[in-house]
Structures are given as structure tokens and as C-alpha cells.
Design a protein around this nucleic acid. Structure first.
Lengths: 232, 232
DNA sequence: TACTTTTCACCTAGGTGCGAAGAT
DNA sequence: ATCTTCGCACCTAGGTGAAAAGTA
């Protein structure tokens, strides 16, 4: 994943579905990115793989949280939409003052998604760490990535150019779809099983099914629903 | 002010400063637009003024609220920034389902700003009207406007073209600044006295001073301040 | 006649990878 | 030698009033 001083969006972005929430309760949904290890990597071109370049980077920085802009929002609303973190920005600037997620280049990371009830009456702007109760954390092996300041691999570059609308200007219209393209179009980008607030605990990986059918109840819409417009 | 089926931003937009809030408490800030009367107007070009065209339009629609996207937010944060409603959109489509503010063309309106404490434990998505306590409402004569689907007055058109960045393409670079331009540049667009949550009651006009100096206290910034990023 | 709707060129605002230049 | 930064052309996304066409 590209990181820059000014901050760069992730592509593809983290997108999840959630179930098992109480439709009437209010929740915050947030994301952070944690290191897989403390190793620095380098990409070996001729063998097309990442190798350990150096070990033990010190200076562990407490990860920053990105709170989903729809927060806080009712369980009902969270559950009926895809929750997309497409505005998260990654930076390598340790002095960043724009609340962006700070990472080191040439390292491996894993995004996490947190779902927390609002009514655990902690003032989110004052606590030092995530509350230990009323929070569920999810992550997926499929979303692990390596940070770079410039792409190391032609296939990744092509993937981004072909899939990211903002890179359309670099697309090569003359060429037929290659092997990679074929793989991409059938690849299951994300598990079809929604995050289950009731079933999973902290830092659990998904993949197998959860239970807890979604009770898609519905408080009657009121004239003032627009108070939280767009519907939230 | 232009209104369209798809929704049109206001220009200039409503912008306020607030003081007298409890820095530690959480507040919602919202805006709505209420009719000045139930009259329909027409613009008489040769006398350059709006005349009553017809009286008593029935079908009073409950105004929609636009909640400022930073809501909820601490009093401390609200008070240290200009609160801008530049993303509000006005529409003449009574069937609008995007939460936009619905108005009738050729009528006169007045924007209002509401500041309310969060802890009045009403679920905002379920109540039928604004709570009667813990809410302060402000409005300003300077912000009254008449709705149109096309400008009726060349001076207004020129004003918008000259001041709205998105209308830059229509600017006439050859012409010197006219009389209107001169007036505009010295006009006090908004009162310099911030809204005082403690002093004013419901639907009060500003203009004279309020008391209540702002105690710009400051809870020490915590690592998790970014939980509400951008700073809020 | 008196408004409203639609389409359009022309903007602002900002997200891409490229390639040259910079840094260590 | 290896990684990072910066300016750039080229996009997406969407906010303007003009002018033509629509409505009643």
C-alpha cells in the first residue's frame, strides 16, 4: 500500500458488513492498523517476494484510530449498509497533525475494525485506550498489506490502475486482459459473512459462519428522522 | 436564493460563532429554514422590488433539520471554530428523499441555528419536535432571503458570480469593479458577536452584545483524541 | 406571460501513478 | 544502491449560471 507525507487513501479500501447489533442501540465503528511484526522488508524482484531486510525496529507507536464518519449511529442503520472506510488515509509522516494513520514504509500491517456500544459512558476523547468491555474487534488475513512509497511490483501497479477510478488516465485500452485480470475478476474480495457483534471476541479472525440472524426491526420513521440526515 | 429539484447549496452559506457552552459537554448544532410569512412574491423589475403576488399559501410543511456534520461535538471544539453550514442544500422537490431542506419558490425565508445539549437523553431519531429545554435557537435578519428558480435581478447574479468560487467561469475580467462591488467589500456580512448559549432564549435575534466570556479551558490532549478525528 | 426544468461549458477540489530529482 | 519527495498530466466528483426547452 502506498504511503506519502501528505497521506494516501488505501486501495482497495476496507469494507465490512455487520450483524448481531441491537437495532435500537447506538454504536461507534472505528478502524486502526496494527503491525504484523517489527521487521523491515525488501522486495526481491527476481524471486518476486518480500524478504526480511532487518529486524527489531523499536519505537512502537500507539496506533491511531479512524472513527467511521457515520458514528455514532444506530445498530439498525449500521447493519443495513456496507460500512466503507474509503476515506482513511495512510502517512509516513510521524508528525502528522491531521489525524491520519501513521505507518512505517516497508513494513507489514493488518487493518482492524472495532464495533463499540456508545452507552459505555466513557468520553471517547479522554480515555487512553479502548474500553475492554462493549467492544468487539475484527480482522481478516485477506486485508494484510505491505507499505511502500513507490510500487515494487508491476502486477500491483497494473491492478491499481485497472481498478481504481482515479487512475483511469494510466489505463492501456489497447491491451487484452491478462492472466492477472482473469484471476482478479473471480477472486472473492471479501468474506460474505458479516461481522457478528454477538459471536466474536477481541481480535478474532472471520471466515467461518456466525449465528445471530439480523432482526431488521424498524422504528416507525418520524418527521425528525432527518435530524440525523443522511439517514443514520 | 436558487432552489432546484436536485438541491442547490446556499450562497453565501450560514456561518456562526458560538460562546457560552460548557467546554466539556457534548452538543448538537443544527439548522433549519422557516417561512417569514405565507405570501407568494413576484419581482417587479422596473421598481426593483419584491411585491406580494398572492396570499395565504396553505400546506405548511414541518421544516426539515440539517444537523451539522461535526455533531455531536464538545462545547470546547464548537467554540474554537467557525461553524459553517456550507453543505446544506435547498430543494423545491416536496418528495425529496435525501434529507434536503424543502422550500417553495418565490417565498421569503429565514434560516435558524439551534444549539442543543446532547445529554437531554432524547433519542433524536424518534422525537417529533425539538425538545423545549436545553435548546437555544438563533436567527439573524441579515440572513433572510427569497427563493427563486432563476435569478430575477442582475445585481444578485453578478454578486454570486463574483463571490462564489464555483461560478468563476462566468466572471468578466475586463470590467472594473462597479458600485455594488464597492458596497459588498465593506459590508459587515455577519455580526462579530458569537451566539451565546447562556444569554439568549428561543428564536432571539442577535446584534447587541452578550456576556459570558468563553472559558477556553483544555482537557489535556490524549493519544486517543484522534478517535474523534478530525479534532472534535 | 411567468415561471421551472434540463443540458452544458466551465469551474473547484482532490485522488491517481509517472518520472525526475533528492536524500542517505 | 535504495528508498523518498515533488511537480505534473490526467482523472473523478460535483458546484456554477447561461440558454434553450418545457409547462401551464
Amino acid at each position: 500500500m502506498i504511503i506519502t507525507k501528505a497521506g494516501r487513501r488505501m486501495f482497495p479500501s476496507v469494507r465490512v458488513k455487520v450483524k448481531g447489533l441491537d437495532p435500537g442501540k447506538q454504536y461507534y465503528v472505528a478502524m486502526d492498523v496494527v503491525p504484523m511484526d517489527s521487521k523491515r522488508y525488501r522486495y526481491v524482484y527476481h524471486s518476486s517476494q518480500w524478504m526480511v531486510a532487518r529486524n527489531t525496529d523499536h519505537s512502537y507507536i500507539t496506533p491511531r484510530f479512524y472513527v467511521h464518519p457515520d458514528s455514532p449511529c444506530s445498530g439498525e442503520t449500521w447493519m443495513k449498509q456496507i460500512i466503507s472506510f474509503d476515506r482513511v488515509k495512510l502517512t509516513n509522516n510521524e508528525m502528522d497533525d491531521k489525524g491520519q494513520i501513521i505507518l512505517q514504509s516497508m513494513h507489514k500491517y493488518k487493518p482492524r475494525v472495532h464495533v463499540m456500544e456508545q452507552d459505555s459512558r466513557v468520553n471517547l476523547s479522554r480515555i487512553q485506550s479502548l474500553p475492554s468491555e462493549g467492544v468487539k474487534t475484527f480482522s481478516f488475513k485477506e486485508t494484510e498489506f505491505t507499505t511502500v512509497t513507490a510500487y515494487q511490483n508491476q502486477q500491483i501497479t497494473k491492478l491499481k490502475i485497472d481498478r481504481n477510478p482515479f487512475a483511469k488516465g494510466f489505463r492501456d485500452p489497447g491491451r487484452n486482459k491478462g492472466i492477472l485480470e482473469g484471476i482478479l475478476e473471480t477472486y472473492p474480495w471479501k468474506p460474505s459473512v458479516p461481522l457478528d457483534f454477538k459471536t466474536f471476541g477481541t481480535d478474532t479472525q472471520s471466515g467461518s459462519g456466525g449465528s445471530s440472524p439480523v432482526t431488521s426491526s424498524g422504528g416507525a420513521p418520524s418527521p425528525l428522522n432527518s435530524l440525523l440526515s443522511p439517514p443514520c
